[in-house]
């Protein structure tokens, strides 16, 4: 598998990362090099092997259903460029 310049630009756009033409060119090469390594890994037969999700065998941690957080609206919006009455304000997006 490999990617072309167009795909690189599209992926960058999907991730909302601005990439210049030169950078996109360079990244196409770098990404294809990485994909080359992945292809090498793909040669290993892993039929019947469960994907490893954790280095230590452990169970997913769970919480009890209790309200332990919240009521800090001022903190939540503290870093926002624009706010009003603890709402975040963003340039108008309307469908």
């Amino acid at each position: 598998m490999s990617v072309d310049l167009k795909t690189v630009k599209r992926v960058a756009h999907l991730a909302r990362i601005a990439v210049s033409e030169d950078d996109a060119q360079r990244m196409t090469g770098e990404l294809n090099a990485i994909l080359g390594f992945v292809e090498q890994l793909n040669e290993v037969d892993v039929a019947g092997v469960e994907p490893m999700t954790s280095v230590m065998p452990m169970e997913m941690k769970k919480r009890v259903d209790a309200v332990t957080d919240g009521n800090k609206a001022a903190d939540i919006v503290a870093n926002a460029p624009a706010t009003d009455e603890n709402f975040f304000l963003v340039p108008k997006v309307v469908e």
Binding site: D84, F87, L89, V90, P91, K92
Partner: peptide
Amino acid sequence: QHPTMSYV
């Protein structure tokens, strides 16, 4: 709520 902004 606002002419140019959306409230979140």
